[in-house]
Computed example of a mutant assay.
Amino acid sequence: MRVVVLVIATLVFSTPIFAQDHYKIYSVEAPPLSMQHPETDYGRGIVLDAVLEAFRRLDISARVEFIPWKRAQREVSMGRDAFILPLARIPEREQRFTWVAPVMDLERSFASLRLRVDSYKQARAELRSIGVGFGTAQYHLLLANGFSEQQLVEILPGKGPSMLALGRIDAWFNGTDETLWYWKRDQQIEPLLVGDAVASNQLYLAASLDVDQALLESLNRKIVELQREGYIERLKARYLGGEVASPE
């Protein structure tokens, strides 16, 4: 009888107890990283699929909401027990969020119809107007690298191809994979000139500053587990094509 009691106690205290059984994740339409209405049978996007799998493995329910990106960041940073993805970890955001775990790397580049742009220096000198997504890390990156606000045109998600085709911007500064995804989706005829990556950073699952620490630690472990299993690399190969890297 004593042995049974000890076993039950061990099970109770080793099982994480979360603040609630339902959490909200805010995201942005950024194929192939996250998608509100998937245009393929793949799923919800590389980053969103990975994070939802982490929640599933913890047997925790998560509801995904897509709202304007600046508002989403404000809701999470000022709220409690809310999550956001895919969020780049840049100085302007460092103190506003709890950084749960990096999910994948993202390269950023300039895309244009009239010239190939391979560096910030070239872009500053040769581009008059550069499209960047509302509230994205791209805007802050360009300001930090010496661009003037007058050179930057904040645009809605996915509007880069049409803005380029209409000549309303000289170039689009964005995540390379997302740029190519949208260009292919819109079936643009003109060849797109995508320069070398000028920046690379990690995309995170982030959370409110006031967040359930037990869930935070559990999610971190699950995302690391997914990386070690090669689960995220398989997602990337499925969405982007290419070979799957071997698990660590």
Rank of each mutant, 00 (worst) to 15 (best):
A165H: 04
A165S: 15
L166N: 10
L166A: 10
L166R: 10
G167R: 15
G167W: 14
I169D: 02
A171S: 12
W172E: 06
F173Q: 01
N174W: 00
N174D: 10
G175Y: 05
D177N: 05
D177P: 03
D177R: 01
D177L: 03
T179M: 06
T179H: 11
L180T: 01
L180Q: 04
L180S: 05
W181A: 02
W181L: 00
Y182L: 00
W183T: 03
W183C: 02
W183Q: 03
K184N: 03
R185E: 02
R185D: 00
R185H: 07
D186A: 01
D186P: 02
D186W: 01
Q187W: 02
Q187A: 09
Q188V: 06
E190M: 08
E190I: 06
P191C: 09
L192W: 02
L192V: 02
L192S: 01
L192M: 05
L192H: 04
L192F: 00
L193H: 10
L193P: 08
G195V: 04
D196A: 14
D196G: 09
V198E: 14
V198M: 11
V198L: 07
S200A: 14
N201S: 15
N201I: 06
Q202A: 04
L203G: 06
L203Y: 12
Y204A: 09
L205I: 09
L205F: 09
L205C: 11
A207P: 07
L209M: 15
L209N: 15
D210K: 13
D210N: 13
D210E: 15
D210G: 11
D210P: 11
V211A: 10
D212C: 15
D212M: 11
D212V: 15
D212L: 11
Q213L: 14
Q213N: 09
Q213G: 07
Q213A: 14
L215S: 08
L216M: 11
S218R: 13
S218T: 08
S218Y: 08
L219H: 08
L219E: 07
N220Y: 13
R221W: 12
R221N: 11
K222G: 03
K222I: 03
I223F: 04
I223H: 03
I223P: 01
I223L: 09
V224R: 11
V224L: 15
E225D: 15
L226N: 04
L226R: 10
L226E: 13
